[in-house]
Design a protein around this nucleic acid. Structure first.
Length: 189
DNA sequence: CCCTGATTCGC
DNA sequence: GCGAATCAGG
């Protein structure tokens, strides 16, 4: 992998946009590491960035709290904390089942915010390369375009795939299944 | 432990 | 010039 003019140009753009070195590396594709980016940045003399970008939070750590549905989320974590099975594959289905219980009739009325109503800025979303085990895997955008991203918020739901907010929608009760499925599995022409 | 950028130094 | 390894820090 060499630094073609194209790559350097993209590097300059993304870096000046305030993306972190690892984020830039992910955008440039496999074969370009965070270290490679940082090294190049220094060689290009781009080390000093505008403070606005440096002070900003490049990390997608905090997703906006789902105002009311959040109260149901801890119940899910509590339930999952107790059993023995480890590893994503083993507890996935269990999470699903327990969540259905967590959203008992008295609590499920609160899950009225859809993912589309919660604005997660592009800068906080993550690409597949940036997605970590600890991040929310909720897909955002059209997967057939380069703009496709994942939510990326750190998922507090005991080892589950989604952040509290998206879990609240993903696991809506059966009566809302039609709307839920429309949100989860959009068709792309 | 997750991440950040900075620096060194063998290639 | 390049970037993995390492460092110092949040």
């Amino acid at each position: 992998m060499s630094w073609s003019e194209e790559r350097v140009e993209l590097l300059r753009k993304l870096w000046s946009d305030g993306l972190s070195a690892s984020q830039v590396a992910a955008e440039l594709g496999p074969g370009i590491t965070r270290n490679a980016v940082i090294g190049k940045i220094h060689r290009l003399g781009l080390a000093e960035r505008a403070k606005s970008a440096a002070g900003a939070r490049p990390r997608p750590a905090k997703a906006p709290r789902p105002q009311q549905a959040a109260s149901a989320a801890p119940a899910i974590a509590a339930r999952n904390g107790g059993h023995g099975g480890h590893g994503p594959a083993s507890h996935g289905p269990v999470v699903h089942g327990n969540v259905a219980l967590a959203f008992a009739p008295q609590t499920m009325a609160v899950a009225r915010v859809t993912p589309e109503e919660v604005v997660i800025p592009m800068s906080e979303r993550v690409t597949l390369m940036e997605l970590r085990e600890s991040m929310c895997r909720w897909p955002m955008g059209d997967p057939t375009t380069p703009e496709f991203r994942f939510c990326g918020a750190h998922s507090p739901i005991g080892g589950g795939p989604y952040c509290a907010h998206h879990a609240s929608v993903a696991y809506q009760p059966a009566q809302d299944r039609r709307r839920r499925d429309a949100l989860r599995a959009p068709r792309y022409a």
